[in-house]
Amino acid sequence: VSREVTELWSDAIGAAGTVIRYGHWGRAVLAFPSEQGKAWDFENNGMIGAVSNLIDEGRLKLYCVDSYDAASWSNQNIPVEERARQHGRYESWILSEVVPWIYRDCGGEVEVATLGCSMGAFHAANFALKRADLFPLAMCFSGNYDPASWHGWGERGSEAYFNSPLDYAGNLHGDHLDWLRARVTLLLVCGQGQWEDTTGSLSSTRRFAELLASKGIRHELDLWGFDVPHDWPSWRAQLAHHLPRFC
């Protein structure tokens, strides 16, 4: 599998983040790691190997990025509103640096799908719903879509609200909702085995699917068996099963 590693500076964060591109041609997919993960995590946990045939055949270009969770959603020393504000720095890096780099790498503006596991699934869904003009497809594996449930505390203001899909999706209406219905698709996958309940992923995935259904937003819900845990072997199998349809 061909690979290119790039460091992209972020003025918002005041540091550089890593982007790793796998492949030379095909559907552009932006992959977020699990909580506090790094760009190398997908390769190190066998996710690249699970879809290497798609990469080698020129059907898939996968862009793996570093997370910023340690300073935002995973920082339990600050209230949830401040965590969301910190996440805004990461959002700025993705939109101002990573997406333009993907466009340059692809030779022009292309539709970019999002992908993630665990907390990465939250990022995949959140970016797609907030910026469906850039990300018309989100593939979300074992996500929890309510940041306030991650040991959140403090008053929840507009920053937290607009980064909680279970909050803002419920209030979508009018022309913007009509546009999202025509534009975005979400794939929600979750096992029913170990840790899917204790992480809140299973209940959150079900609730999120019900919410999207109530709003008429295109989505698929795929629940795997009680022997499928919240772990990389599950996500490798789920990714290999679903991704070929989309590239």
Rank of each mutant, 00 (worst) to 15 (best):
A12P: 15
L30G: 00
H241Q: 13
K61D: 03
G191N: 12
W40Q: 14
E57A: 15
V80T: 04
W153H: 01
A113F: 08
D66V: 05
A50H: 02
E155S: 14
S34W: 01
L180G: 00
V1F: 08
G120C: 05
I94W: 05
S158F: 13
H242G: 09
G26V: 10
S34N: 10
S149Q: 11
V110G: 06
A125L: 00
H24K: 12
G191H: 13
D197W: 14
P165F: 00
G46S: 04
G152C: 04
N53Q: 13
D56V: 09
R207W: 10
L187S: 08
W235C: 04
A240S: 15
A31M: 08
L212M: 13
A121S: 14
E155I: 14
G14F: 00
L60C: 02
L221K: 05
G17S: 12
W150P: 00
A124F: 00
K61I: 06
I55G: 02
S10E: 10
N171Q: 14
H242W: 15
R181H: 09
G157A: 09
I94K: 08
I55K: 00
A70R: 09
F246H: 15
S34F: 06
L95E: 13
E4G: 15
F135G: 01
S118L: 01
W224M: 10
A138H: 04
L188E: 06
D227C: 09
G49A: 05
N126I: 02
